[in-house]
Structure formats: C-alpha cells, structure tokens
Amino acid sequence: MFKYVLKRIALVFVTFFIIMTMCFILIKLLQPEKPMLGAQAAMELARREALGYNKPILVQYAIYLRNILTKWDWGTSWEIDYMAPVNEVIFDRLLPTVLINLYSMVFSVPFGIIIGIYAALKKNRWQDHLISTWIMIFVSVPSYVYAFIVQYFLSYKTGWFPLIMSSYADAGGTFFSWTMFRSMVLPVLALSFSTIASLARYTRAELTEVLTSDFMLLARTKGLTSRQATTRHALRNAMVPILPMIISMFIGVLDGSLIIEKIFAVPGVGGLYLNSINLLDYDVFMAVGMFYTFINLSSMIVIDLSYGFIDPRVRMGER
C-alpha cells in the first residue's frame, strides 16, 4: 500500500508540471493591449521589454521556473494589486471566501445528509416526491436568481440582514464579530441551497440503491429491526461515494462562487481567477491556477485512498 501511495505522489508532481507548462503557454498566447497615445505606447513597450515579455515564451517559462525553484518567488502582480507579490494577492483574499464556504459547509452538510436519508427511507411516498421536487428546484434554478431573491426579500424588503458583507473596519477590526457574521448570513444561505440540494439528492440516490441490495434482506432476516439494519449496514455502504464527495466539497471551499461573491460584494478569491485572465495579470493567473490544480490533484489521491479505507473490498490498483 505504501509503495502505491509513493508512486501516486510522484505521478501527481509529473501531472502538475505538465499542466503548469500548458497553462503558461495558453495564457502567454493572449497579448495585452497597446495604449493608444504615442508617447505612452513607447513607455508601455519599454516597460514590457524590461519585464522580458518580448522574449520567446519558452525563455520566459525558464525564467519563471528558475524564480520559483530558487527563490520560491511566484512573481509580482502588475494589474490586480500593483507590485504586490502574488502569494500576498491570494492570501489577502482567501479568508473571506474560506469563512463563507466553511459556514455554508457546516450548515448544509448535516442538513443535506439528513434530508437525503429521510427521503430515501420514505421512498416513493409523498414526502419523497416533495423533497425531490424541492431538491430539483434548488439544483436547477441559477444561483444568481435565488441569491437575488434571498437578498431582495431578507434584506431589501425586510431589512433583517445587511445587503452586502460588512467590511473589516465596519465590523470592528475582526472577521469574527457579530456584525460580520450577521452580514455573512445571506451569502452563506445562497451558497448552501445548492450544496444541500446536491448532497441530499446524492445521498437519496445512493441510499435507495443500497437499501434494495441483498445484504439488507439478510440483515432483516437476521432479525434486526428496520432502524438497526438501516443505520448499521445501509448507511455504512451508502457512505462509500458520499464521504469523498464531502471531502471534494471541502476542497471546493477554496474556489468560492464567483456570482455569490459579486452580488454580496464579498472580497474573496472567487473573481480573482477570471479577473487575472481579463486583465492579463500573468503571474496571478499562474499562481491561482496552480493553487487550484494542486488542491484538486491532492484531493484526487485522498479520495482514491478513502475508497480503500471505507470499503475494504475495493482495493486500488489490484487486478
């Protein structure tokens, strides 16, 4: 087992390197715009010359790698935060996104599972249909529609919650004050709907499949009450795909939802990725891109390993 894990980690680094090269070439294909005024155009060209943008892409890539390997310097941002080192650009914005997503996870994972289980147990009865349609509604309605509805009714019309997330200064210099939390309720709610719905649907689907399998029949014939059979056996089996999904949701915490952050003015990393493409801030794009890629690849390993961990029958890599 340990040899297998080592092999996987080595492969992750190879994949990481290939993706990094691909992204670097892809982004460098997009050329920034030249300013119009003659004098400023010459200035901008001189600045790009100084930063080495005119060199062939592979040479630039070599310089970029050398900076990372020798000084762990992922470059400076020129468009999003003028002259700020790239890791500062990311970590300044990480906390609000992580907080919002963490609150939403903590709020929606238990609800999602419970609703899923309840729906599975009451399969094809009116509760199940009610819950399924409710799930479908929340999964299918675009996030900016119910984000707007939540904002319109719970804040604009009634004034119970502030319209947008409060700033650090207004919240008394801390991210953990009551005003800050109250101002986060709406974005958390908006984020949670889709998580609860998708988790519930997934749990319901897995559980129904497990409930109809033959070992449940065996459990019942063994004399277990239906409640015991469900909790002891059915749920354990149903968890096989659910746990990795929760793990990947945890990992997903970091990418933040672009639209929710736009509507509730959350200063998070959500818009950073797209912003760096629009403004062609090369170093920020590479750093953010590689940040997510590393998280995804490492979560892949964790999930694959968790398969083996939860369901002993499914051994990885064995023929």
Partner: peptide, 14 residues
C-alpha cells in the same frame, strides 16, 4: 465552536 468564537470577539463597532 464556530459560533462561540464569532460572538466572543465582537470588537468596537465603527
């Protein structure tokens, strides 16, 4: 735990 932390440290309201 999360709830506890957030209420405990509500600083000066600006």
């Amino acid at each position: 735990v999360m709830m506890l932390i957030s209420f405990a440290s509500c600083g000066k309201k600006d």
